[in-house]
Amino acid sequence: MNSHLLKQNIAFAIFRILGLMVVSILFWILGFIIYQGAGVISWEFLTSAPSNGMTSGGIFPAIVGTLYLIVGSSVVAFPVGILSAIYTSEYAGNGNIVKFIRIMTNNLAGIPSIVFGLFGMSLFVNTLGFGDSILAGSLTLGMLALPLVIRTTEEALKAIPDTFRTGSLALGASKLQTVHRIILPMAFPNIITGLILSIGRISGETAPILFTVAAYFLPQLPHSIYDQVMALPYHLYVIAVSGTDLEATRPMAYGTALVLIVIVLIINISASYLRKKLQKRHA
């Protein structure tokens, strides 16, 4: 065996090991949380409020709170995001405006979530006077999700071949009719996938809700959008670091982490399943 081949074999072996490492890190994390958390999960854990200073009971209010925030931020981000993507990909052409919008979207996507938290606190909680509320939290999370929604929707729209556009226009349809009747129905599956992925992102965020909505302990469910809620990621954070008796709250923390991971995984996996299934149908 010559030395070049030897070098190649060594290098490739290293790359294979690295690939294996990354996968095993993922399974290590998942496996650990599942192993530790599985014993905690019970019907009671999922349907009751925390009790005895977070050492027993369940996480029902946090699950409900997270669902409220998901719905709230979707209401904020989806319409604006989809409309914005339709504008940039169908209407704005290829000029400087689109470039500018794209740079802004990229920048927005790069802003750390804690900065969104600061901004949400300053604008929604204090200046507009919403207080710590579902409204303020949803708006903050919605802004965080916006670039993701725009990007994925834009990609979905770009994937439609131009022949459909020109064909529709040639038949005498207006631009709006083309978008409404041809482009959107065709891009629909991919748009939905993108939306589901952005929900997955929102559901795990902690930093933006720290100061805009999250409550440490709130046994009753919220009555209006001006109420605070508990949320799964924040709940995991507080019981992991700030309990009075960390030993006693650990099982609760494992259980919460498992529920959070399962929710996020279900969202992500259903998105990629949907994408695959719908792509097949189109192909």
């Binding site: 990354v22 994390i29 997955g200 795990g204 954070y237 982490a257 991971i261 992500n268």
Partner: peptide, 27 residues
């Protein structure tokens, strides 16, 4: 393998940061 690895890596990106933090804290 690629079709197996890529989604796995995407899943890694999907895990919430607070779960990473918790894993870091206890392991």
């Amino acid at each position: 393998i690629r079709n197996l690895l890529k989604p796995t890596i995407e899943l890694l990106a999907g895990i919430p940061s607070v779960v990473y933090g918790f894993f870091g804290l206890v392991v």
